[in-house]
Design a protein around this nucleic acid. Sequence first.
DNA 1: GACCTTCCCTAACAAGTGTTTGGTAGGTTA
DNA 2: TAACCTACCAAACACTTGTTAGGGAAGGTC
Lengths: 210, 210
Amino acid sequence: MRADNGGVPKQNDKTVTPSPARRRELLATAAEVFAAQGYNATTVRKIADEAGMLAGSLYYHFDSKEGILDEILSSFLEELWQGYDAVLAAGLGPRETIEALVTESFREIDRHRAAVAIYQKESKHLAKQERFGYLVESQQKFEKAWLGTLERGVAAQVFRSDLDIRLTYRFVRDTVWVAASWYRPGGQHSPEEIARQYLSMVLDGIAVRE
Amino acid sequence: MRADNGGVPKQNDKTVTPSPARRRELLATAAEVFAAQGYNATTVRKIADEAGMLAGSLYYHFDSKEGILDEILSSFLEELWQGYDAVLAAGLGPRETIEALVTESFREIDRHRAAVAIYQKESKHLAKQERFGYLVESQQKFEKAWLGTLERGVAAQVFRSDLDIRLTYRFVRDTVWVAASWYRPGGQHSPEEIARQYLSMVLDGIAVRE
DNA sequence: GACCTTCCCTAACAAGTGTTTGGTAGGTTA
DNA sequence: TAACCTACCAAACACTTGTTAGGGAAGGTC
C-alpha cells in the first residue's frame, strides 16, 4: 500500500534510474500475461520469463508486482478519460454523445486491449484496496457521464422512457466493454466499424422493423 | 461432456462417505468466495474459514481445490443445458427461441449467480486444461444454438441481415451473461422482468421510433 | 460396553510465492 | 585508465500455498 503521504509525487526515490522505454516494454508484456492468465494466477517469474529475464531483475524497474498492475491500470484510465472528457466537453446532443462515447470506447479497446481485459476481471475486487481507490472514482465518474447522457436523452425524447434507466445503463456499458474479451486488433473490422454496428444494434435493435 | 475415462463413474472410491447435503452447503460457500475474489486469489483457508472450519477439514469432503471448482462449474452447466435443451426442442420460431433462451438464461443467473460469475471470469483460461475440457464443448454447443437461431432468424427475415452475424451473436451473448456481475437475487426486478426489458432493448433498441 | 461412522482438528509437509541482497558485464563518461 | 551507470543475474529469504496423516469427539448400532 503506497501511502505516499501528502502530495508527494508517486515516483519512488530510487537511486537507480531505469529507462522509461524499457519500462513501457515490460509493462506491455506484463499486461498481456495478466490479461491472459489473470493477475493472481500470474507469477513474476512468468512475466520475467516472457520478457527474457529473471524474476529478480524486474525489481530493478518496478518496486512490486502490485506496482506493475497499478501502472497498467492507471495509465490506461488516464488515457481513457482524456478521450471521454473531450467528448463530454463537445456539447453534443444525447444521442451523438452516446455515439461518440461508444466509438471512443472501442478505440480505447483497440489500443489497450490487455489493460481493458484486466480492468474487467480485476477492478471489482481491487477497488476494495486503498491503493486502487482511483478505480472507484473512475467508476463513479463513468456512471455519471453515461447515465447522465441517457437521462438527458430520455428527457429529450430521443431514448425510450419505458425502460428502467439503470438497466439501460448497465446494458450499454457492459455490451461495449466486454468486447475486450474477444476483440483482437488487426481483425476483420476496425474499431470504428465495430462501434457503428454496436450502436446500430443498441439504438435500433436487431429485429426487422415493419 | 466430462472425460470420465471409460464409463467409470467420477466418484472417487474414498472409504469415507461425506453427506451430500453438507457438500452442497460447502460448494455454495466456496462458490461465493470464488465469485467474489477470483479462483486463484481464493485460498482454501478462506473457504474453510467462511464455512466455519479449518482448511484441512475441507479435504474430508473434496479431494482438491480444483475439484471444488470443477463440481461448481459442471453442475451449473448441467442444469443450464437441461433448460436450454428443453427450449431448443420446443420447435419455436427464431424470435421466440431467442426470447426463451434469454429468459432461461436470466433464470439461471438468478439461481446460480456465483457459478455464472466464476464461469465468466475463469472459463477462458480454464478451458486450456484437460480437466475442464467440457467447458470448450459447452461453449461450442452454446454457439451452435445461439448463432444457429440468429441465422435462422435472418433467413426468415425476422432479424436484420445488414449486421455481421457473429458480431450480433457476441452482442446478444455478452449482454445476457455479464448481468451476473451486477445481478443480486431478491432485487428490484425478477429475472423474468429483466429478461423482458433486455429483450426489448436487444430486439427493438433503446432509441425512440418515429 | 464395544464398535463403527461421520465430521472435524492439529500439525506438519513440500512446493511455489513475491521480494531482497550482493554481484557483475558492458557501455559511457572523466 | 579509472570511475560510474545501466540493466541484468545468482542465490537466497520469509512467507503462503494446497495437501496429507493421524487423532479424537459425538452419536448411532449391535
